[in-house]
Amino acid sequence: MRTLKIKLMLAAMLLAPMSIIQAQESGTSQAFWVHEDVVKPSMVEEYERICKELVANMKKHNIQEANMIVANLADSRYLYVGPIENMAQLDKPVFATLAQKMGGTAMADLFDGMDKCYDVEQNYVIHLDTELSYMPNGMTQTPEGENYRKFHYLHFAPGNRKMIKEKMKAVRDMFAEKGSKVHYRVYKSGFGARGEFYMVAVAAKDAVDYAQKALENDALLGKDGNQIMGDLFSNLLKYEEYLGRMRPDMAYSPAN
């Protein structure tokens, strides 16, 4: 059994429930481990079939040690994301029970099949910053009925770290003062990530809903918005935007 492969490939299958976000009492940041598979476009269908088979087995055996949310981007990347309290948590044998329940090499065979679907996989840590996020109705990564996502990556130089954070606070304060209907979560790059960045995740029902909210928000923020946002963007190294969606059909939470 490829123990190391299991740890690295699906480390983001959570070792703690998603409610840890709300339960955290100290600080304004929650660490998340992210496992990212860059799937070959021609292998997407096979990859999803295997992943869903894995989840079906987890549900069948009600595996208590795992819990995950999943997102996939338009460029065939799949992100498995989950909160961690510390890096040592990742050393726990998360799938030992599932391997025993499935028997033989059944689980390893699933992972072997996944290996054929991509050439690149990576693991890194990001931190949800509740102070910089704008979620007036309460913090959640999965707003009900809003699986559409826009992920905005704001890359900056380490020497500008403090300045960029202050400008992100100014944006949050402006959204709050204006009563914006566009809610968002801010994640800061951490261990294993390439370069420093903030990732801003915005949820919507679909592309039309997102576009409508964006237009209304631009009108609401007006000149103040252009000035504050322009000030932030003028100090970035690079800006990237990715379209994605949450995949509840590939997610897993144990039954009580």
Rank of each mutant, 00 (worst) to 15 (best):
R2A: 08
K5D: 11
K5Q: 08
I6M: 06
L8F: 15
M13L: 10
A16E: 13
P17T: 04
M18D: 12
M18A: 10
I20D: 00
Q22E: 13
A23R: 15
A23L: 14
S26F: 09
S29I: 04
S29H: 09
A31I: 02
W33P: 07
V34P: 07
E36P: 01
D37N: 07
D37P: 02
E45H: 15
E45F: 13
E45T: 15
E48N: 06
M58C: 07
M58V: 02
K60S: 01
N67Q: 12
I69G: 04
A71Q: 02
N72M: 10
A74D: 10
D75W: 09
Y78D: 02
L79I: 07
V81E: 07
G82Q: 03
G82A: 01
G82V: 00
I84T: 00
M87I: 11
A88F: 10
Q89K: 12
K92Y: 12
V94D: 00
V94W: 00
F95R: 00
A99I: 08
M102F: 03
M102P: 03
A106P: 04
F111S: 07
G113P: 08
C117K: 09
D119F: 06
D119C: 02
Q122V: 11
Q122H: 15
V125K: 00
I126R: 04
L128I: 06
L132T: 00
L132F: 03
L132S: 09
Y134N: 09
Y134E: 04
Y134Q: 08
M135P: 00
M135A: 07
P136W: 13
Q141T: 13
E144L: 11
G145H: 08
N147E: 09
Y148K: 15
Y148F: 15
R149W: 02
Y153Q: 12
L154M: 11
H155V: 13
A157W: 11
G159R: 10
K165S: 12
E166Q: 15
K167A: 10
K167C: 03
V171L: 15
R172P: 08
F175A: 13
E177S: 12
G179Y: 00
G179T: 05
G179A: 06
K181I: 14
V182S: 01
R185Q: 09
V186F: 11
S189N: 10
G190Q: 06
F191S: 13
R194W: 01
M199L: 11
A201S: 10
A201L: 14
V202I: 12
A203G: 03
K205M: 15
V208A: 09
Q212I: 14
A214I: 05
A214D: 10
N217H: 06
A219N: 14
A219M: 09
L220F: 02
L220C: 05
Q227Y: 11
Q227G: 04
I228N: 10
M229A: 07
D231I: 03
L232G: 02
S234Y: 05
L236F: 06
L236Y: 08
E241Q: 12
Y242M: 15
M246N: 04
P248E: 04
D249P: 06
Y252S: 01
